[in-house]
Design a protein around this nucleic acid. Structure first.
Lengths: 222, 222, 222, 222
DNA sequence: TATGAATGAGTTTTCATTCAT
DNA sequence: GATGAATGAAAACTCATTCAT
């Protein structure tokens, strides 16, 4: 069972959370965390609600107090995990070298961070990969389930990206389309290479991937 | 119910097929065709074996004479449909213009053919898209379910591609990786644009797609 | 949500009710009223305690402070509503014509009042009809849930009936049995005609109903 | 478990039934019979499908091969049992005395047969009574579940009734409405008297019942 | 080969009731 | 008294798979 922890009992209005509020938040997190681990262990279709509540240590009925059904739960997990991965990748892009570096180096660091994330957790890849795409952004931006914090983080991801372009004096017609194209490119080719070793191993493919991304940047530059 | 038809009762050894052989082949085809239509109508998970046999007009038990289970059936369908689409795309690439044309024009025609295939059948896209990838090729090449004919067709797809490169004096280190990268690129970005209109409509995205593919070709050229 | 109102805060001992007492009475009424509206909207079996407390605007646990369970609640509702309908019917019987009228005319007015009550609210009919019977009287007379006021009203219904017979010099062996027979007769045939249009519409059936009641009165006359 | 018996394996087309056909018919009957006994023992709402299949000795899924749900099953049972009771009552009406008897005597025998049926099985009464009404006739007449035989038997009930009227030279405007009125009258007052002893015991009430029916016959006579 | 009735484990979902706050 | 989060037993229904015919 994934540990329940809540170091900062402050609710979204900045007020101190009541014991009940804290408890509810923990139950919700317990469900999310344990469902996630089950999804990547057994796959979404093979995970039952019974599995989830058992591992989370709550009663069956409790599940339905927090989520409409298994799909509702999945949507939230995919969104949260995708943001996590992207933030990590951006972090990597900015900090990979201490001294000033070219845009190309930054992009390579960005894509490698995503790929390593997946490689380190092949199981996670199967669950997230095909969902880590532009759709995630719109989903969170519009969903009334996602809280303010989630939305903020998405904007962070995008703004970070813009900042990096700016620092490198890179200009293009539509940065959104550029980011979208890059993410889809990394994700789709990386998936095949990691999961299927097709058409070759990830290590063999990486140079092609970097070269490909570089060329896309050039192609969309004004 | 999709009609069962077999205009050419010749088996894979080139012999005239017996009535029994023809019958068996028809049953198999009926299952494949009707399962396909159900998968794109209701989705794979929501289609039951009962649904399939009902629509195919055969008994439940008969299903298990031809396929191990629903997954076995799906694999074969994805493979067949993917090849169909790729062949059509290559046909388009070669014949789009009558007079000699550049490689870039050919590639654009190739990718557009795939995208139009999907746009014309959004439902099919949901089922095939994420499976139309390099994995398909290996699957068919190795599967003991797929017959000689399927394998031949795959080689055709690849050989056609090589021929086009050759005609245009295009040389690269590994044509397989090039083809793989292109297919994944079209498929992943096209899916998002068609299904989700994200980050923009397909029509708005197409120029970016063409430019992207062109740049990839250049990047991998020796 | 049905409005909670209590214009006359006097308790059953004639004393002015405390704020707490008023509050409790209002909660109870809110539960009764909203449960009733739900029962006729969705049926008894399809109404949950959650539905009731939600609409009544009280907490789940509060329900159990006032009623043992859903059945307890239903019994009280049926009794209250039945009395309401009967009183209305008697009122109609007495006041339908201003000048002196025959017993037959009075009885017709009585039965029509009940039928119109139901016709105006087909939904109510489904819930009440099969319960509007002699059993109701005994239930209230004996129940320790029902208060003094309810019991009084039942006696009123019966005494009114006796008075009408008396005014018309009608004598029979057992007026209770007569009233019982008449009520069951109206209720059972009326239900079928209104709900099922079987064997004919209520309007077509009414003359038969009146003739039937008239004949029953004659049959039981001494 | 109610015994499965089938003495005459002839299907509705007059053909000899195959072993499979016989088996299916027996399964269906086992479900009907055992569900019925459970309904009158525990009530409809308190009987689960598990209860039914356990007692019938078939698997859970088998239930759904024969009935849509519990309500579908109930409808068929009510219809069958109602016809049974009515046929028995008519039999009694015709044969109660060997010598020629008056219509009044016949009617009394008819109503007494229904009442005795219920009295002998108070439990059955709770389940059937409120459903033994005109609605049953229309239900069966229209239902596509009921077979030809059921429909025939209903016509028998009605034709028998007409025959008895004819033998006694009784004429009325609408025999259907007469039969409807009588059945509802017996059923509603009898229910109260048997189940609730309200307003008095059945034995005490019977003379009133007979007198009431007699008066209704007179009232509707032309 | 082909059938389709039968199976029953497995899954989702509901909801009356409790009880700590 | 009032609350409402939590419970978990219980119910309906599904469906892949088998096997006697």
């Amino acid at each position: 069972m994934v540990a329940i922890a809540n170091s900062c009992p402050i609710n979204s209005f900045g007020e101190k959370m009541s014991k009940v509020e804290v408890n509810k938040k923990n139950k919700r997190l317990a469900l999310l965390d344990n469902a996630y681990s089950l999804f990547i262990e057994k796959g979404f279709n093979n995970t039952t609600i019974s599995d989830i509540v058992n591992r989370a240590g709550v009663a069956k009925g409790t599940f339905y107090l927090y989520f409409k059904d298994k799909f509702d739960l999945r949507n939230e997990i995919v969104a949260r995990k995708s943001i996590e991965i992207l933030l990590k990748a951006e972090e990597n892009m900015k900090s990979s070298g201490t001294e000033p570096k070219t845009l190309e180096e930054g992009i390579a660091a960005f894509s490698d961070a995503i790929l390593e994330c997946f490689r380190n957790n092949r199981l996670q890849l199967n669950f997230i990969s095909k969902n880590l795409s532009w759709g995630v952004f719109s989903h969170i931006a519009e969903s009334n389930f996602s809280n303010e914090k989630d939305r903020e983080e998405i904007n962070n991801v995008y703004n970070n990206f813009l900042a990096v372009l700016d620092e490198n004096n890179y200009k293009c017609a539509d940065p959104k389309i550029l980011l979208f194209t890059i993410i889809e490119f990394i994700n789709s080719t990386g998936y095949s290479a990691i999961v299927g070793d097709a058409p070759c191993s990830l290590d063999k493919y990486k140079p092609y991937l970097h070269k490909g991304i570089e060329s896309l940047f050039k192609a969309y530059k004004i």
